[in-house]
């Protein structure tokens, strides 16, 4: 057993004792019970497990938990502020950008990072920025629409 290490997950301090070689995906879902982050492939191919580690877009299935000691991790559960959904979450709902919803948490994390880096992306920049997140249902057109709507400020004010 390793000595416990510290993470800040969605703004809250967490202490975990990962197995040697444990991936951040396992830590987040199995130890911290934040199951919004999804397993899709385990090999960095699909993006369903996308999280932010110190603000960087990261495939949690490829990140060693031990290498994240002291890091701030954001999962889909950390996107809303209390009961108020983030603009991207509201845009995904309004534009039907989630079908089965399984890849959606990863898509939202990737889109959050994209808009942090580039508040007003072109369609092509959205396609490049989101191309590491697969969706088999085919929500891509709606994801583009939703991100564009947020970039235009359409979801800036929280809906009642």
């Amino acid at each position: 057993m390793q000595p416990p290490m510290r993470l800040t997950v969605n703004g809250r301090a967490a202490e975990v004792s990962p197995e040697p070689g444990e991936r951040l995906l396992t830590t987040v879902t199995e130890r911290l019970h934040l199951t919004g982050t999804k397993f899709g492939c385990g090999h960095g191919e699909c993006g369903a497990c996308s999280v932010l580690v110190d603000g960087r877009l990261t495939y949690a299935c490829l990140a060693l938990t031990e290498a994240c000691d002291g890091a701030a991790v954001t999962t889909v559960e950390g996107l809303a502020t209390g009961e108020t959904l983030a603009p991207l979450q509201r845009a995904f709902i309004a534009h039907d950008a989630a079908q089965c919803g399984y890849c959606t948490p990863g898509q939202l994390i990737a889109a959050t990072r994209l808009l942090e880096r580039n508040a007003n992306p072109t369609e092509n920049e959205i396609k490049v920025g989101m191309s590491g997140n697969l969706c088999r249902c085919g929500t891509y057109p709606k994801i583009i629409t939703a991100i564009q709507a947020v970039a235009r400020g359409e979801f800036a004010a929280p809906a009642r």
């Binding site: 879902t29 934040l34 199951t35 919004g36 982050t37 999804k38 397993f39 999962t75 889909v76 559960e77 996107l79 809303a80 959904l85 979450q89 995904f92 709902i93 309004a94 039907d96 989630a98 919803g101 399984y102 959606t104 948490p105 939202l108």
Partner: peptide, 18 residues
């Protein structure tokens, strides 16, 4: 609007592996 969209965008929707 899809009635379960809120659960899907917040990570609250529970899939089998969850």
């Amino acid at each position: 609007v899809r009635v379960d969209a809120g659960e899907k965008v917040t990570g609250q929707a529970k899939y089998t592996a969850d």
